[in-house]
Amino acid sequence: MFNETVLKEIKQISGKYPTTRAALLPALYVAQREFGHLGADAYEAVSDVLGVPKAIARGVGTFYAMYKHKPMGRHIVQLCTNVSCMILGAEKLSDFLKNKYGLEPGGITPDGRFSLVIMECIGACGTAPAMLVNDDFYENLTEKYIEEILEKYK
């Protein structure tokens, strides 16, 4: 169940839409933020607030690949491996993450600190390879630079 502040936030979001069902997508984002990913608890909580049957909330949520559907680390590393990044060594960086941190694409570090998501192009071809950690953007990546960056996220 959500706390009062979150309840209010979702109610407010829902007020912007003609029906509560239309507010599902943004409400699921809030739930994802609160629960870390969309699991049964998150869908049930959203269903309770919006009054939308939980099976429908789950049907909508699972349709979209960009929601997080399984438990994630505290910080999410999103690494681009599209053409420019690939040519400039993104795949090697992916191997580096695997060897150094035990972080496989789609996986999570044993300590729950990081998750790795392989991203489609994030529009940084000129400064490739590039990645996002949570909402922060990093470019011209090297193995050493990645080590420095990840140090900032505990």
């Binding site: 939980k54 099976a55 049907g59 349709f63």
Partner: peptide, 20 residues
């Protein structure tokens, strides 16, 4: 009006499931 089942996932992976 029970809305107990839904289409889960997308495309070739989609299937029908109850919430649980």
């Amino acid at each position: 009006g029970a809305s107990a089942i839904g289409v889960i996932d997308r495309g070739g992976h989609s299937h029908i499931e109850p919430f649980s």
